[in-house]
Amino acid sequence: MAKAFGPPNDHNILLASLSPDLRAVLAPHLELVRLEQRSALEYPQEKIERVTFPVDCVGSMVAVGDEGRRIEVGLFGFDGMSGTSIVMGVETSPLEVFVQVAGDGYTIDTEVFRGLLDQHDALELHFKRYIHCLNIQTTQTALSNGQSKLEERLARWLLMCHDRVSDDRMALTHDFLSIMLGVRRAGVTVGTHILEGKGLIRAGRGVITILDRDGLEAEARGSYGVAEKEYARLFGNPPTD
């Protein structure tokens, strides 16, 4: 099956799907920057300084607990943005947000962004609709984490990451995947071996290649697709102009 958002096209869908008038409001304040892997976008309970709209990078939202416990609760790329709490009028978040796949993104100063949202109700509504989609993704993640086998969870996560990159090859270590899935590294090894044994992926050192996307969707057993369909209903994949 095709990727949920189509291939990356050097734009951010949230920005591209704005009306021309609203895009013109934001455009003078956006700065295109390079974001390296592991770059921090938000620190837990610290004031968010800038909001980022990825173009071809991928961001991860991670819940942090006691004794170093961490698990991913949200994933976004050229479909989304960081700093969602700013849209809701909150300056901080308990989450850690960082870049998991390096690339470019547009950034805007938080105070400028919040000021523009206050001035333009339609702009605020647009980004609140994205938060609605992200909330659905989070609930599906909770359902998957609680009710799915590890290989099903891994299949869903790989599909979500694959949606947001241009290549079938993704630089992903088992250590990194263990954080994303909230399991031990040994569990990730078992999960990748199962998917590899079914011919769905090829796992190398620090790289996973998607071989059979349709097969991965079947392996995910319905845990993938609900949030993606809602996003497509609200935003589609608009062309740049």
Rank of each mutant, 00 (worst) to 15 (best):
V101G: 06
V207Q: 12
I210E: 05
R153G: 08
G191Q: 03
I194P: 00
L158Y: 00
R213W: 07
G83H: 03
S93F: 10
L159C: 04
V90Y: 09
L150P: 02
Y130H: 14
E96C: 08
S148T: 07
K128I: 08
T107M: 12
D212S: 05
N135P: 00
V73E: 06
S144E: 11
E91T: 05
F176A: 11
G89P: 08
T189L: 08
D175R: 00
I86K: 01
T84N: 07
D118H: 08
D167M: 00
T138M: 12
R114Q: 09
Q137Y: 08
E96S: 15
R114Y: 06
G77N: 10
G77F: 10
I179G: 05
M170K: 00
N135H: 05
T92I: 15
D214S: 13
Q137G: 04
D214E: 15
A142C: 07
Y106C: 09
D104Q: 13
G146S: 14
R205S: 13
T92W: 06
G115A: 02
R164L: 15
T139R: 01
D121Q: 12
D109G: 04
R129M: 08
Q137F: 08
G197T: 03
V87Q: 02
K128A: 07
V101S: 09
L123Q: 10
M81S: 15
L116D: 06
S144Y: 02
E152Y: 00
V99I: 15
R205E: 12
V73F: 03
T189A: 14
I179T: 15
G146D: 14
L134F: 12
I71G: 01
E72R: 00
R185P: 07
L117T: 11
L177R: 01
L150R: 00
T92L: 10
N145R: 01
V165E: 04
T92E: 15
K198Y: 13
L150S: 08
T138Q: 13
T139Y: 06
A171H: 09
